[in-house]
């Protein structure tokens, strides 16, 4: 039945170079084949192309705040009055202290992601800042945490002024 003279007769599955090489190439291919499938679950091109949001600031009056959507998240844009700016510059916030100057690019405009840093609820606007309805975290008009369970200040998204009255939120890749 089996040829006797061949050395690998007794064990036709004997590991040798050819077997190892074939196995390695096949294995690499299987791993590679996963790549398109894994990638297909990442955000699609049309989602990525909405990764930035343009906002016209002209419509926001001093003292008013507007919520816009950026990457599916709310972003608060607060047009601060001089009085509010002065108030904010006078303090360093609460448990995550930082100067107000580092929270803004232009003192009149505060741009922060409107998700409570505790568990991601959307804080509601109060005159002196924001109050999170879920667990009562309180933020000031610089988006800094004053009290409540939230650990850090409201996050600053990347943004740039396209003109005096227009900002682009997000990293401009297109």
């Amino acid at each position: 039945m089996l040829k006797k003279e061949k050395s690998d007769v007794k064990n036709p599955t004997r590991r040798d170079f050819l077997t190892t090489a074939t196995g390695a190439v096949a294995g690499a291919g299987l791993v590679g084949a996963c790549w398109p499938f894994i990638q297909s679950m990442n955000p699609t091109m049309d989602v990525l192309s909405k990764a930035t949001t343009e906002v016209d600031l002209g419509v926001i009056k001093p003292g008013e705040s507007k919520t816009v959507e950026w990457q599916g998240k709310p972003v608060f844009i607060l047009h601060r009055t001089d009085k509010q700016i002065d108030e904010m510059r006078a303090s360093n916030g609460g448990k995550d202290p930082i100067e107000d100057e580092k929270r803004v690019d232009v003192p009149n405009w505060l741009v922060v992601v409107g998700l409570c840093t505790h568990l991601g609820c959307v804080p509601s606007r109060k005159e002196e800042g924001w109050l999170c309805p879920c667990h009562g975290s309180v933020y000031d008009n610089s988006g800094r945490i004053l009290k409540g369970p939230a650990p850090t200040n409201l996050e600053r998204p990347p943004y740039q002024f396209l003109s005096e009255s227009k900002i682009l939120i997000g990293n401009n890749k297109v």
Partner: peptide, 8 residues
Amino acid sequence: RRIWANLQ
């Protein structure tokens, strides 16, 4: 081919 060469 090598594996099958084991058969007559």
